[in-house]
């Protein structure tokens, strides 16, 4: 297996994950590419056992760093920027945006650990890998996942008119 094949196998899943985590497609791709740059440069830091795990961990960490920076920036901007009105959208598009907003909100009501568990499970991580990723016992992953899913869905349905 060449590096390129590994790349083709993992890139879409990584971008999907990063995008779900961050909500910003450009940031998602940027962060995933950064992770691959680090991998290729051998600037390998992290505790995951496998290449895939390492990549997901790196992406998670990069997103976290970025969120911290973005939070500071948006605090500054909020103080000065006038509210921008969004351009008129087609009805279908508005509906889609609303759905996305609701899902995002439900996701954001989870704490970071639960969000990471939920999203990495969607990418096929085993309980064992998940446990390593968020630092819990493998035996408690089922319980944490069940609760996280329940909370996510409760929040989502509570929003539905």
């Amino acid at each position: 297996m060449t590096f390129r094949e590994i790349f083709h196998d993992t890139y879409p899943a990584l971008v999907r994950y990063a995008r779900r985590m961050a909500g910003d497609p450009d940031a998602a791709e940027d962060v995933v590419q950064e992770a691959f740059v680090r991998l290729l440069d051998g600037d390998v830091r992290g505790e995951s056992q496998r290449l895939r795990g390492w990549l997901f961990t790196t992406v998670t960490n990069l997103l976290r760093d970025r969120a911290r920076v973005a939070a500071n920036r948006s605090r500054l901007l909020a103080a000065q920027a006038p509210a921008t009105s969004s351009p008129p959208e087609a009805a279908g598009e508005a509906e889609r945006q609303e759905r996305i907003r609701r899902v995002r909100e439900a996701l954001e009501c989870l704490d970071e650990r639960d969000r990471t568990l939920l999203l990495l499970r969607e990418e096929g991580f085993s309980y064992r890998e998940l446990a390593g990723e968020v630092g819990v016992q493998p035996g408690s992953v089922g319980t944490l996942l069940a609760r996280a899913r329940q909370r996510f869905r409760d929040r989502l349905t509570e929003e539905t008119p």
Binding site: P12, R19, P25, A106, L118, E122
Partner: peptide, 22 residues
């Protein structure tokens, strides 16, 4: 949950994710 999360994936993503370009 899986279905709901799918809403976050832009249907245009498959075009964006041109691995060669990336």
């Amino acid at each position: 949950v899986t279905e709901a999360l799918g809403h976050l994936d832009d249907p245009g993503d498959t075009e964006r994710w041109v691995p060669d370009r990336a």
